[in-house]
Amino acid sequence: MTLSPTLSPEYAAAVEVLAEGVWPAPGDPGLPAPLAGFAVSSFSPMASAAADRCLEQVYGTPGAAQSQELVRRAGRTAIVLASRGGDLETHTATAAAVDAGRPAAPLLFFQSVPNAVVGHIARRWGLAGPVICFSPDAATADPLGEALDVSRFLAEGGDAGEALLLLVEQVGPDGAPANARALLVRPAAPAAGEGS
């Protein structure tokens, strides 16, 4: 599902949005399908579902020969994950186990690091590029802008030609329902005559 992302004029001029995917989209069930190796929480399945919806628009089916060739030609694709709250369900389940004197489930330790789902997405799609996960400033009204700044920094440094931006929240800052948004972006081509 392609949506029209709302970018500030500064970012709209600086990046080209190749595709966008979200979870949930109209008609989706309550939760995305579980991911093998991930338990309890919807954070990683939401991130993966949004990423798949985004990347399928540009690269087709993950793992297919044609898809792998398109990814290879794209070069280094960074993955930038931004989440204010992180994986709250995993943190809550771990805290409940510790408070009850039980050991936390080993999978919860693994998936408590956001890089775990990012690694899953990179492997599934064959993406090769830097990975950055961060929590935007709670006072910042524009986590997408911060993620775009990171992607622009990576592009300017020659570390990646494009970036998959993931914005994942299990509870929105205003109590909004859990959601994930993925955008595949690359630096916009310079306007004619620019830089000459």
Results as ranks from 00 to 15, higher is better:
E10K: 05
L148R: 01
Q66Y: 06
R76Y: 01
S135P: 04
A49H: 07
I79E: 01
G175M: 05
A188N: 06
A122Q: 02
S196D: 14
V40I: 15
P32D: 04
P136V: 06
A13I: 09
S48M: 11
P45Y: 07
G126F: 05
A12E: 07
A36P: 05
G21A: 02
V131H: 10
A122C: 05
F110T: 15
T94A: 14
P136Q: 07
P143N: 00
L81F: 05
L184P: 02
R181S: 04
E10H: 11
H91S: 15
D87F: 07
A128V: 12
A51N: 04
V185E: 00
F153G: 15
A93E: 15
G27I: 12
T92A: 15
P130H: 13
S8W: 01
A25R: 14
V150R: 04
A141Q: 13
L107D: 13
L81R: 06
V80H: 00
A95L: 14
L164A: 02
E162M: 15
L107N: 14
L184T: 07
L107K: 15
P143F: 00
P136K: 09
T77S: 00
A192E: 15
S42V: 12
H120K: 08
S44N: 14
C133F: 12
A19W: 03
V117Y: 01
R53G: 08
P106S: 09
L70H: 14
A160N: 03
R53S: 07
A122W: 04
G101I: 05
L148A: 07
A122F: 01
R186H: 03
L31D: 10
E69Q: 13
R84L: 09
G75K: 02
R181T: 12
C133M: 06
D149P: 02
R181A: 09
Y59I: 11
V150E: 05
E194S: 13
S135K: 15
Q57F: 03
